[in-house]
Design a protein around this nucleic acid. Structure first.
Length: 116
RNA sequence: GGAGUAGAUUAGGUAAUCGCUCCUUGAUAAGAUCGAGGGGAGGAAAGUCCGGACUCCACAGAGCAGGGUGCUCCGUAACACGGAGUGUUCCGGCCUGACUAUGGUACGGAAUAAGGAAAGUGCCACAGAAAAUACACAGUCCUGACUUUUACUAAGUCGGGAUAACGGUGAAAAGGCGAGGUAAGAGCUCACCAGUCCUGCUGGUGACAGCAGGAGCUAGGUAAACCCCACCCGGAGCAAGACCAAAUAGGAAGGCGUUUGAGGGCUGCUCGUCCGAUGCCUUCGGGUUAGGUCGCUUGAUCCUGAUAGCAAUAUCAGGACCAGAUGAAUGACUACCAUUCUAUCGGGCGUGAGCCCUUUAGAAGACAGAAUCCGGCUUAUUAUCUGUUCCGGUG
RNA sequence: GUCCCCAUCGUCUAGCCUGGUCCAGGACACUGCCCUUUCACGGCGGCAGCGGGGGUUCGAAUCCCCCUGGGGACG
């Protein structure tokens, strides 16, 4: 329960995995800031992937968004139920929002879906 | 104090908690986890504008086409880059001059894609008589015929001839000024000045500069228009390329060919050369469109010192090892300190604009993220310092 | 990451190569008037643009350079 690491097995790495989640997962829009895809696998730990396109900003902005989401997922993944894949797609305007606001929105969305 | 310009340095630090990636090493149930130690973004990593290294195509060849560069010398692996100079243009200062203008300048600064326009072709709108063979027109001058007045002469009309001083428009008008000369004029001739070309001498490696003599009297601009000249360039790019594993298919039709040569060698064409045989090409159908390892970081590398050189840079000596990720790591948060700015309490210095120390509060901390690696250029951007030019203030 | 291409009224485009006659032409859209009982169609008119900066040139939408913003290809 104290596991707060974030390794490769906790991340979605392959393009075909992303494609599967896009086509079969549930799509939720969160406050106009980002989109969450949720897909129930059979077993295993919860995993996450993040997509930030070049339309959002430069490499610095995109790296910062991905780091914030990784941090949020890392600190909260102990309370998320098993076998869940989450993919987040950032939308324009997210680069202006801070860490606290993103964490709050993310947890609210998960609670609404009763995933934690 | 402000603005411009040139250059140098810098790109906040420390600690605590949680976390990521790579390397070394230890343990175990041996490629998975845990422990220990160490490394982990930039001056532009960016734009991808040039130049290389490296890899493959053939051992990288020739010609044409195409592309690029364009003052000189040096530097360099190379460059369109850098350094030192030359010329031209502009600005300022100074001199000439009655201010302006003009001209000069051994001074200071800035810009400079700066070969050729007396090889050729094209273009030069509008305006203007004319935009490049000064053809024509207007004007001026000489002259023939006719008309009017008629003593000469003057005026007008129609012709012939001469001319480029005169036409004030334009971005640009065919050397300038004076004298002679002439019917009127003209570099037609002459003196001076400016400019062009040729020859010689001197200085310099050279661009070029200076001096002397001569020629012709004059040559518009545009080559970031075509072009000519000189020099350079083979093509693709680490998604290059090599290996491993897995999966599917070993299909049908047509064509060409086996030493007399199909086809291929990754921008075009030709030549030459090489490879080349149940092989190659085209179409249709089917399958894969999920990988892994190497390349992958020790290099035109960085730091210090010496020597050569005005400098860019080079050589030598000693030392150092400094990211290798791949849905892509170097982060999150807290505290303190330091920096800058604004306001403010108090004190000191100075004639003064102001400066220095200090208390408290608030704000700011930019541009931006390696993806094969280097050398440049360009663009974005924080803070400080120094040199220099101009403007302003105080004394 | 590497290599390419494009940018003109609100939209689609012509002009660019070969600079001037272009204060940039056309179509659709918008808008005013006429026509019609009214709408549509038609006729006449109006509005509105060379992505930004610098250079070459007497003169730049056009030629050259640098930025900005879009788009594409490659295992």
């Amino acid at each position: 329960m104290n596991d707060r690491s974030l390794r490769k097995k906790d991340k979605i790495l392959r393009r075909y995995e992303y494609k599967e989640i896009y086509s079969k997962g549930k799509k939720i829009s969160v406050e106009g800031l980002f989109i969450v895809y949720i897909f129930k696998r059979d077993n295993g730990p919860p995993r996450m992937g993040i997509t930030v396109t070049k339309k959002i900003g430069g490499a610095v902005v995109r790296n910062r968004i991905k780091r914030i989401f990784r941090e949020v997922f890392r600190l909260n993944k102990g309370s998320i139920i098993e076998g869940i894949d989450i993919v987040i797609i950032a939308r324009k305007g997210l680069e202006k929002v801070g860490y606290m606001a993103i964490e709050e929105s993310f947890l609210k969305a998960l609670e609404k879906e009763r995933l934690c």
